[in-house]
Nucleic acid binder design. Structure first.
Lengths: 333, 333
DNA sequence: GACGATCCCTAAAACGGTTTAGTATGGCCG
DNA sequence: CGGCCATACTAAACCGTTTTAGGGATCGTC
């Protein structure tokens, strides 16, 4: 009844069953040659004793911890709202749930973009979200030989063997810009950020190309580090644009705020679109959303990493994104 | 130059330095008696060799993994938006960042409320968010002897030795209800949920007590499992209430949607308040927010758990919440 | 010059599993 | 009956650290 002071180990199970620890290990892990009734008996005894294998010992011997790390950018300088975007949190959430399906756990590792990995977690592989140029995390993993999967294409050279999960922003931006064109924009703009990641650069490129192709004057405004997004949004609106796409929800909300303060009706006088998740229960705010489905991204990263660890060749995955016009929420579940 | 196929271990460092592995271990971990210049030399060599201690081996020997688990409820039946609320994700995010300050990592462990812990992560302790009645996770930790900290008071008996981190919802609800009283409500209501956790029960109790004290007809409506929050909100508004507090953002947004469909102006004809995080860059929607600061909660949980692991007596922490009236966002950063 | 204290270091045991190599038993076959 | 194989098990090595117990200088003291 009273549990003894020490945890029950495999030796205790072996003693209780009158067997060697090898047989117990085999019986519990479906390995080796064990008589079926012996296997069953061992399992029963282990259950009765409440045996829980020591994962550290197992990891030491097998070299596998069954822990996947996910590196989330953490800038000491910036406030919460800007560093730990809802997007990142949702990626972590999606990854955690998918990982459990594969018998793994997800360790969220805050990493400083300048200092790189600080806490040393014994993980089998790492998911790097939105790698930047000269990424210290990627370099650290490379030098330590840690398998990596990235969300977003690495910008540095020499990572061709890394599986990449990306949003289909080419298609997504196509839908956004087509929406703006149909609405009759004459002066579209992009409210972008200062981060030099693939997502930012690709979005800017797609926007510029589209403007050139349609012979429209496209304005790209970057929110500078430390600058208020609202101030940047106001500065942009003062230049007489009639449609703006925002790189994320923070910038999109800043645009809505700026539009309200200028009395510009959305989506009447001004069209606003943004990358981000539209809460199906939130009332319409006039903006259109390009939903990235970050939870699906996280799940895809886990699947890619697990496959990579199992020796599958690096394979890239593209997750579709969904365009949600203003006023139309997804069906309420 | 070419890194050999095997990782460099403490033996390699010892060999390179011409010392025993004991001395190397001591030098790197600031233990034992090592001559200062020897210590420095060992550290230099370890750095040059790129030595990274094997965490699994270290964990096996010391019995400490430096990993803290956080259990996040995961209901297979419900869709994402409802199971993995922004609140939980932010708690995880706050915990992850605080943990790194203490040299720990955070493992996000999705747990089924019915099946309990499934993945076996070698963690030193666990943060349980919003324990329910007859909580299987708490029971599992108890039987395995895993130290626990909860966010929200446990409802089961026998967990008096568990440190608890709570929101000061008594003060928060006081601010909300005082706001409604000042606005002149005659028929307040609460849109609550079906979860039997302390937060839900306490909120309902505080609301009912306040209504009784002010001699007002208070209506409490619970969103049933599987029911659409919008339908529940509409049903509530049809009963002629003039002020509603929502248990979370999903319900609050549902109320805003229902109010709009009924043409009820907020905060004119109808007052809406909700528990949730007001995005400082989001435009005003007429609702008031009671901000829980989930990231601070997560951080407080980590501090409490680390202290508990270090042998400190269980000590409860209350994190204040902030009332944000409609139309007034926090100062934009 | 014997003795103890101090300083710096080492050998070996532990941690708790998994895996390798090997062994006793019995059945089958020639 | 002897050789061979399959079955069901065991003893011991192993994973890479930390920690315990101890050992040889060097120095001061009486």
């Amino acid at each position: 009844m009273a549990t003894s002071r020490k945890r029950v180990g495999i030796r205790d199970v072996a003693a209780a069953a009158g067997l060697s620890i090898t047989t117990v290990s085999w019986a519990l892990n479906d390995k080796g040659e064990v008589a079926p009734d012996t296997r069953e008996r061992v399992r029963r005894i282990a259950r009765e004793l409440g045996y829980q294998p020591n994962q550290a010992a197992r990891a030491l011997r097998t070299g596998r911890t069954r822990i996947l790390g996910i590196a989330v950018a953490h800038r000491e300088s910036a406030p919460w709202e800007q560093t730990y975007l809802p997007y990142y949190r949702s990626v972590v959430a999606g990854a955690a749930i998918e990982a459990v399906e594969h018998g793994h756990a997800i360790a969220a590792i805050p990493v400083s973009p300048t200092r790189g990995l600080e806490v040393q977690v014994p993980c089998d592989g790492l998911i790097v979200v939105d790698p930047v140029r000269n990424d210290p995390i990627l370099a650290g993993c490379r030098s330590r030989g840690i398998p990596v999967v990235t969300d977003g294409r690495p910008l540095d050279e020499g990572y061709d063997d890394v599986p990449v999960v990306t949003n289909d922003i080419a298609a997504g931006m196509g839908a956004v810009l087509e929406h703006l064109r149909t609405a009759g924009t004459a002066h579209p703009a992009l409210l972008s950020g200062a981060e030099a990641d693939a997502y930012t650069l690709d979005t800017e490129r797609l926007f510029r190309n589209w403007c050139r192709r349609h012979d429209l004057p496209g304005t790209v405004r970057r929110v500078r580090a430390g600058e208020s997004p609202v101030a940047a949004a106001e500065a942009l609106l003062d230049r007489g644009v009639d449609a703006v796409h925002a790189l994320n929800e923070t910038y999109g909300n800043a645009l809505l705020l700026a539009a309200a303060s200028r009395g510009q009706e959305v989506p009447g006088r001004l069209r606003i679109t943004m990358m981000g998740e539209r809460d199906p229960f939130a009332p319409d705010n006039g903006a259109a959303y390009l939903s990235l489905d970050p939870a699906a991204i996280g799940a895809a990263c886990v699947r890619a990493l697990v496959a990579h660890l199992d020796g599958a060749p690096a394979e890239n995955v593209t997750v579709p994104c969904t365009f949600i016009p203003p006023g139309r929420a997804r069906p309420a579940g």
